[in-house]
Nucleic acid binder design. Structure first.
Length: 427
RNA sequence: GUGGGCGUAGCUCAGUCGGUUAGAGCGCCGGAUUGUGGUUCCGGAGGUCGCCGGUUCAAAUCCGGUCGUCCACCCCA
């Protein structure tokens, strides 16, 4: 609660050490996995020109942006997503770069919306993109990174899966089922929400908005329920019309099987993704229990770079937020316990040894060890308690006796064993 | 943006048919312990009961508003 006069803004988080530990745990895993796949890290400014988002996503997105006019009368916005910035950055320099470009980032993103579980006004999002490769090899590579990012944190195929689809395939399928070309985008909208509405409501929309008859609605429902490429092929029969898209998606899934990730991948044509700029394969990672919102979403966006004024390059990528992921890790008991720790905690028995201890502390720090001690005079018992609280590996005790013998006593805080360390080793 | 639940100590919560100085556990600080921690015992600090207003002799308790939070909707990176 807000006892302080200055309360935290709603939807924003503080990160005291015990909370920053989880965020770091997640981000370090993300970074390790991205590097393991040969991606390079980049970043951009958190504040961008408002136009960058309006051009791409339309006026209605402005209601969900943190935007304002700066002192130079420029309409600006805190970045709500990273992809437009990536497109802008590459528009300037991609022509001179070898392809494909494999970049990742972990920006803090902002949106102005009412917060609820798994959705704040600020979050950190892992963005991984491959730019300059149109083939399904890039699509598969990117989803493999996302899957391995979660595996790195201890999640398994019991915990989550990737649901994959392809907008071109869905478009072709809609053609096969008989959706007129001017009704396709309406159909996309209904299919995107179909899981969250009652069946009668969906049927009604498919009839009235999309223009399908009863039999076609039935057939489309069956097709949308397919969870493998073979099942989908059976349902489509020999009519053709989607052959090329089917072969494409089959290759994609084949690559993921070769990687040993088959357990993590399911076909699901209901995955559409809201973002208008997706053009091909799209996917979401979700928890298998279905308790949380999507952990990660991504796909192919082959037009975006030229829209922003850059080289016409195909691209594919995803974003994964730290909020939902943190909740999933907590539910699966995969959040490491936060423990402060230091290598050495130094204890002067009397103040007469403090100068020598400060010297030793500095020697150990120069050697790269972490060292702590009480900053003012306290009893030995108190200092030992403090050493425990600080998570000391070893306590070095120095009193008049040790000074005389030319050593310190090193106490192993795990075992309680003590041994002498000559001062000559700490010079 | 719409509708609903909740809001008592740092944390988890108890306490309300309105009635003297509002409680517990954990945590924190101090002491038992002026050359040895994790256990234990003793003591202490910390709350204008989210905030503002109303009803009342009297409000943590009832009413209204507001802010925060959670849930659903909307939307989705």
């Amino acid at each position: 609660m807000a006892t302080s006069e200055f309360a935290r803004l709603p939807g924003f988080r503080d990160f005291p050490p015990e909370d920053l530990a989880l965020r770091s745990h997640i981000q370090e895993a993300w970074r390790r996995v991205a590097r393991r796949y040969g991606f390079s890290e980049y970043d951009g400014p958190p504040l961008e020109s408002l136009d960058l988002y309006v051009e791409k996503s339309g006026e209605e997105i402005v209601g969900q942006l943190y935007d304002f006019v700066d002192k130079g009368d420029r309409p600006v916005a805190l970045r709500p997503e990273m992809t437009p910035s990536l497109a802008r950055i590459l528009a300037d320099r991609s022509r001179g770069m070898s392809k494909p470009i494999r970049w990742f980032s972990m920006p803090q993103l902002f949106r102005y919306e009412r917060q609820q579980r798994g959705r704040l006004r600020e979050h950190f999002q892992w963005n991984v993109d491959i730019v300059g490769e149109a083939g399904v090899g890039a699509d598969a590579e990117v989803v493999a990174v996302a899957i391995d990012g979660l595996r790195e944190l201890g999640l398994t195929s019991e915990d989550f899966a990737a649901r994959v689809s392809d907008r071109r395939l869905l478009n072709a399928v809609l053609g096969v089922v008989g959706v007129a070309s001017d009704r396709r985008s309406a159909a996309f909208g209904v299919i995107d929400k179909i899981e969250r509405m009652p069946a009668e409501k969906a049927d009604e929309l498919l009839r009235d908005e999309v223009g399908l008859n009863g039999a076609a609605v039935e057939r489309l429902r069956a097709i949308l329920a397919a969870s493998s490429i073979d099942e989908l092929a059976d349902l489509l029969g020999d009519e053709g019309g989607a052959d090329e898209e089917m072969a494409n998606l089959r290759d994609y899934i084949g690559i993921l099987m070769s990687m040993g990730l088959a357990d993590f991948v399911e076909l699901d044509l209901r995955i559409v993704r809201g973002l208008a700029y997706y053009t091909g394969i799209v996917f979401e990672l979700f928890d298998r229990k279905g308790e949380l919102r999507a952990i990660c979403g991504g796909g192919r966006y082959d037009r975006l770079l030229e829209l922003v004024g850059g080289e016409a390059l195909p691209a594919v990528g995803f974003g994964m937020g730290d909020v939902v992921l943190g909740e999933l890790l907590a539910e699966r008991d995969l959040v490491p316990e936060y423990r402060p720790r230091v290598d050495y905690f130094l204890v002067p028995i009397t103040e007469d040894q403090r100068a020598e201890l400060l010297r030793i502390a500095h020697v150990l720090r120069e050697r790269g060890h972490s060292v702590a001690y009480e900053l003012r005079e306290r009893g030995v018992g108190k200092q030992m308690k403090a050493a425990t609280r600080e998570g000391a590996d070893t306590v070095l005790l120095l009193g008049p006796d040790e000074m005389e013998r030319g050593c310190v006593v090193a106490r192993d805080m795990q075992t309680g064993e003590e041994s002498d360390v000559p001062l000559s080793e700490l010079a």
